[in-house]
Design a protein around this nucleic acid. Structure first.
Lengths: 161, 161
DNA sequence: TATTGTTATACTCTATAACTATA
DNA sequence: TATAGTTATAGAGTATAACAATA
C-alpha cells in the first residue's frame, strides 16, 4: 500500500513521486502518520471494546478520579457536546459512573468501576507494547524529540488565538 | 484554551495534569498536533474554495499531469471510492478535467485547467507562509527531524502489513 | 481473474446552536 | 451573565461492498 509498485496482474500502477511538492507540507505528513497509527490503534483497541476516544477518556478518568466531564473534554480537545456520547458509551459498558460533584451541582464527577479499571490496564498494556514496537525501530531520542516538537506545534497555535 | 486556568467568573476549571499517563502516547499527541494544524489550514484554504483534501489533490495533479485517479488516491492514502467526490468537486469548480487515459481505457487522466493552476499557486503560497511561521519559531533542523520521523512511522506500519 | 471508476452506505470525528439547571 | 451537561444537527473523513467496463 502507499506507493504500490507491482501488482498481481500486469496492470499499471505508475509509482508516483509524492515528494515533488506535497511531501514538504507538514499538515500532509502529520495526517498520514496519524492515520497509520490511528488504524493500528483501532485494531488493537477494538477487541477490548474501545475506540481511540473512549480509550483516551478512560485513561484520564482512571488517573483523575472525580474528574469533571467538561475538564475531561478540554483535556482531550473535544467539544463538551461531543464528550457526552463518549462518556455514555463508557457508562453503558459499566466502566465509568457519573456521580454528583461535591461542590458544584451543575457538574458531574467521573469515576471508574472495577471492570473499567481492569479494561484500562489491559488497554494500556496493549498500547504500550505498540509504542515499544515503534521505539525499538526508531531510537528513543528520536521519539522524545518528536513528542517535544508536536507539543511545540500545539502550544504555538494556542498562542495565536 | 487547552489547559484553561482562569475564567471570567469564579467558576472552577481544575487545571488537569494531562501528562500523567496519556501525554506519553504518541497517537494522542499526533492527533492533537494534526488537529491544530488542520483547523489552521482549513481557515487558510476556505477563502480559496479549497479543503485540505481537495488542496492536496490539486497540488498533486498540477505536479503530475495525466495522473490516474487511482494513483492519486493511493498517493494521498485515500480510498478510490472517496476520491471520486474530491475530483468531482475540483472538476465542478473548473480546476481539473478528467480526460481519457492514452493507454488504458478503464482509467481517467487528470489534468489542471488554467484557473486551477492559478488557484493552486495561491494556495501553495498561503500554505508555505503558514509553514514558514512554524519554521521561524521552531528551528529548521527540528522540522526536518520531525518530517523524517513521521515518514519513518509511515513506512514502519507499511512493512507490518 | 484483477483493476478502474463509480455508487451506496455507514460510522466516526468535528463543529455549532440552543436548551435546562445551576453558579 | 456565565458555566455544565445535554440534545439535535450538519459537515467532513474513513471504510466496505458491489457493480459495469475494461485489462
Amino acid at each position: 500500500m502507499g506507493s504500490g509498485a507491482s501488482t498481481a496482474n500486469g496492470a499499471v500502477t505508475e509509482n508516483l513521486p509524492v515528494d515533488k511538492t506535497l511531501r514538504r507540507f507538514l499538515g500532509y505528513r502529520l495526517k498520514r502518520a496519524y492515520n497509520t497509527i490511528r488504524s493500528e490503534l483501532l485494531g488493537l483497541l477494538e477487541p477490548l471494546g474501545l475506540r481511540i476516544t473512549t480509550y483516551s477518556a478512560l485513561v484520564l478518568i482512571v488517573d483523575n478520579p472525580g474528574l469533571r466531564q467538561s475538564v475531561l473534554a478540554a483535556a482531550l480537545d473535544i467539544k463538551r457536546s461531543n464528550m457526552v456520547a463518549i462518556v455514555d458509551e463508557l457508562e453503558t459498558k459499566g466502566w465509568v459512573t457519573r456521580k454528583e460533584h461535591p461542590s458544584d451541582r451543575r457538574a458531574l464527577a467521573l469515576h471508574v468501576t472495577k471492570t473499567g479499571s481492569r479494561t484500562c490496564k489491559r488497554a494500556l498494556a496493549v498500547c504500550a507494547e505498540h509504542e515499544s514496537n515503534l521505539l525499538e525501530s526508531m531510537n528513543s531520542d528520536e521519539l522524545i524529540q518528536l513528542l517535544t516538537t508536536l507539543e511545540k506545534i500545539e502550544s504555538l497555535s494556542e498562542a495565536s488565538q
